[in-house]
């Protein structure tokens, strides 16, 4: 059984539970996953843990009409916009398509997984609580107020101290700024894991997961949903 699944954030909405509560949920399109390789745990040069490498979200497929038209001139690498090493790796698993998201997922045992098969939510171990990992929305170069939640100065009354970071610390000693001083810088666009989120509903037919609350990233972002 898979311990995690790859997904795509679709968006947020709210649903009614059976006891009449309205719950905010994030809808995640989870799977189907295409098994690209099975990595068995081995010592030395091998893979450190049991895992399967899976591809999610087919972003490019072969256009059969174009292939016929071009005949011998048809270049698979160009058609899929993949370089040859990557294409070779996919071909080995029997997939001639481009995936938007390829990751390795840990498994207890690699038995039962074969290269080239397609996994859906059915093969995912169901959990009440999950961790969701995604790339947060990028806020660019942000000041200390937005980035660290510092207080602003007064806007009026001749304040002259609006959104500045404040003091850099003591002066003669240590005559330097301590590392970790909260200053302006890049905010967001980093990997964020939210833990212990509740799964409200699993829709196996439509490959959808309904997770309570918000998850990192913008709509359409890829996320990894794993067991808590």
């Amino acid at each position: 059984m898979l311990k995690g699944i790859l997904g795509k954030k679709i968006g947020m909405t709210q649903i009614f539970t059976e006891d009449g509560q309205r719950v905010p949920v994030t809808v995640v399109e989870a799977g189907p996953l295409h098994v690209l390789s099975v990595l068995k745990e081995s010592e030395g040069k091998g893979h450190p843990v049991n895992a399967v490498e899976v591809g999610f979200d087919v972003v490019r497929e072969i256009n059969p009409e174009l292939k016929e038209k071009l005949g011998e001139d048809f270049d698979l690498s160009k058609a899929l916009r993949l370089n040859k090493p990557r294409l070779g790796h996919l071909k080995k698993a029997g997939f001639e398509k481009k995936f938007g998201f390829i990751k390795q997922i840990k498994v207890d045992s690699v038995d039962g997984f074969t290269v080239g098969e397609v996994l859906t939510l059915k093969d995912f171990e169901f959990f009440m609580k999950v961790d969701v990992r995604g790339i947060s929305k990028g806020r660019g170069f942000a000041g200390p107020i937005k980035r660290h939640g510092q207080k602003t100065g007064k806007q009026t009354h001749g304040s002259r101290f609006h959104r500045k970071p404040g003091s850099m610390g003591p002066s003669a000693w240590p005559a330097r700024v301590f590392p970790g001083k909260k200053l302006a810088g890049q905010l967001g666009n980093t990997a964020v894991t939210l833990r212990n989120l509740e799964v409200m509903k699993v829709d196996v037919e439509r490959n959808l997961l309904l997770i309570k609350g918000a998850i990192p990233g913008a709509n359409g972002n890829y996320v990894i949903v794993s067991a808590s």
């Binding site: 679709i10 968006g11 649903i15 009614f16 809808v27 439509r206 959808l208």
Partner: peptide, 16 residues
């Protein structure tokens, strides 16, 4: 398409 899924899910949870 995305909005369709969201709308469907919302409607499904609503009592008829």
């Amino acid at each position: 398409m995305k909005q369709d899924i969201l709308q469907k899910i919302t409607e499904e949870s609503a009592a008829k």
